[in-house]
Design a protein around this nucleic acid. Structure first.
Lengths: 361, 361
DNA sequence: CTGTTAGCGCTTTCAC
DNA sequence: GTGAAAGCGCTAACAG
């Protein structure tokens, strides 16, 4: 008899991984039936007998389906991209947790992209995510206020959407997509209102990079709260700094060098607040909250452990991540325009704020 | 003339995204040439003229390559999986940062999997990552000491490796793969040595879940350090707790209820140390380090801001993540057995430790 | 150096 | 219900 050419070598350029065809053969059915049995094709029902034979064969062979192949055939993946500034930042950690939880629930895989606060890198990752044919992208972290950047971001996102991808922003990114909004403005207002109620009239603000939408919004909240009370924010009471502990430390020093008479400091995130706390107490020898009150923003996990424990504005970050994913999965076609979920900020009062010193009138 | 059937509709079940074929047509070359021009195929060089025509066409059409299709054709993806316990945990945040940095450098995408400390979920994610045909997996976070689990983990990993995937562990997972080792044992020894040198003889230990390899190793270090000094760890000086702030808080209370005479506490991670600090100072009214010294483990970003600032053992987590990815990329075939990179722990002395109280002799 | 073509593994019409 | 077959978009032999 004629020798079989290459009897059962699956193919030359393959991984050697078990293939659906192998499962089908073993179960004695066609590959189509195997596919339907395993992934419940489109309303198609498979005879129970065949179905279990396929399942058995798959188990015996330890079949693991090939997502890239499925993606190609279906022209749709089960991957969503999560774009953050910095993975180590607890702010994103919280959002990511929410996203991961929901993703697991919906059987989605999450591809992580970290821009390290580089706008260009953010754009780069967007095309990479597009290359991966991510089904959706969650844009977390703050947007940049830069016009040119926002325009390019919008274009990139539009292209992504054209290919059928969904986009959800967590926080305002200046782009016209579904969004889970965190009320930064209101949170900041609450913080200032709290200080004001305690009698503070000379309040210093340590802002993060003014190029971030988040910072802009929080600052807006501060100004609005002040205006409502017939006050304003003097230029020398505002200092811009890195959104980090070190930034907050340096900023507090700079602030009090100019305005030693301040009775309160509002740092626009907890990291900076931690730095300010250290600068104030160790560097400047001011007691907190005796001489100076300090408020932060975000309520990170460790903020209650700072010394003194930090009064801060809590943002429902985990929930934001979760809702973002729900917006993705909820396939409601774009009847009507963008969907916006509003999430509230909440002031958490702890030990770092107290009445303004008596002589501060 | 005969009417063209479906003149330029790309196809019925496609995304509508621009295709390499379209680019090729527009550039007036074959699809093969387009592919080579764009992705520099295998040493093959393309005539400069054609090459630039292809590039131009791709740009004009805003061509974005299709990773799933490439993956199928090459039977290899550019995705690596990162498996952690908890994304929000700064411990993993640090590792993830290292991984992301290196991934960007090597043009790899990272797929994130969070087990939320559920062994079963960890196993599940492993097959999902396999389904995605991840080129490699970084197993971060602690392994479990559970034998049965470790065995199943090993099998799953073996299957993954059989299909050509690489596996790198960060920390000991009890499996036989390339590993970036963090010297938990030695770090714990350093911590105990430090306390001992300060005169502490009655040291309490707050351990995390004993089912974690990391905890086991750190505890080993404690015992070894003690033995070397002719001492041991009495059963009532050890308490197991959740690897969290709350866990540490409760554990400290329990510990001092049994052994009010302790002069030092070693919490096996910083989160628990933070809880212990609060329990000791606020709950029990003990001064730190005046009456009791406290040491933590991991040196998380905020540990210096605790009150008092925490003496702790620093682990080069970011570097660990980075090295893990380097092991993946470094294609050195498995000549020789598993590769192991050792990373050292370093004691960072801050304000939470001091001499043992005089009457404690 | 360039073009042709046979797959990669799977889904999904379309007949039966 | 089930199977045959036509792709999904791209890469990699293999010829020229």
């Amino acid at each position: 008899m004629a020798p079989d050419p290459a009897p059962r070598k699956p193919s030359d350029r393959s991984t050697g991984a078990v293939t659906l065809q192998q499962v089908a053969t073993r179960a004695g059915v066609s590959i189509a039936t195997a596919s339907r049995a395993l992934h419940g094709g489109h309303g198609r029902v498979v005879n129970e007998e065949l179905r279990s034979r396929v399942l058995a064969a798959a188990a015996e062979l330890s079949y693991v389906s090939n997502a890239p192949a499925q993606a190609l055939a279906r022209s749709r993946t089960s991957v969503v991209g999560l774009l953050v500034h910095d993975v180590a930042d607890p702010y994103f950690g919280a959002i990511a947790t929410g996203v991961m939880r929901a993703a697991a629930e919906f059987d989605l895989m999450v591809m992580l992209a970290a821009s390290f606060r580089e706008p260009q890198l953010e754009l780069d990752y967007l095309v990479r995510l597009r290359t991966q044919r991510a089904r959706a992208i969650v844009l977390a972290g703050s947007g940049f206020t830069d016009q040119a950047f926002t325009a390019r971001l919008g274009e990139s996102l539009a292209g992504f959407a054209e290919d059928g991808g969904r986009v959800v922003c967590v926080g305002d990114h200046g782009v016209d997509t579904d969004t889970v909004n965190l009320d930064n403005r209101d949170g900041a207002e609450q913080a200032v209102a709290h200080l004001w109620a305690l009698g503070h009239r000379r309040i210093g603000v340590i802002a993060g990079p003014l190029g971030l939408v988040t910072v802009r919004d929080r600052l807006d909240g501060v100004r609005r709260a002040l205006q409502r009370r017939g006050a304003e924010l003097p230029a020398d009471c505002l200092v811009e700094a890195d959104f980090t502990r070190a930034g907050g430390h340096a900023a507090a020093l700079a602030l009090f060098a100019r305005r030693p008479d301040l009775t309160a400091v509002f740092a626009l995130n907890d990291g900076m607040a931690a730095g300010a706390l250290a600068a104030l107490q160790e560097g400047l020898g001011r007691s907190v909250p005796g001489e100076v009150s300090v408020v932060g923003f975000d309520d990170l996990p460790y903020s209650a452990d700072l010394h003194p424990s930090l009064t801060t504005v809590r943002l429902p970050l985990r929930r934001a991540g979760q809702r973002a994913l729900e917006l993705i999965v909820d396939e409601r076609p774009q009847r009507g325009a963008r969907r916006i979920v509003e999430l509230e900020a909440d002031l958490t009062v702890r030990a770092s704020t107290g009445p303004a010193p008596a002589h501060s009138g």
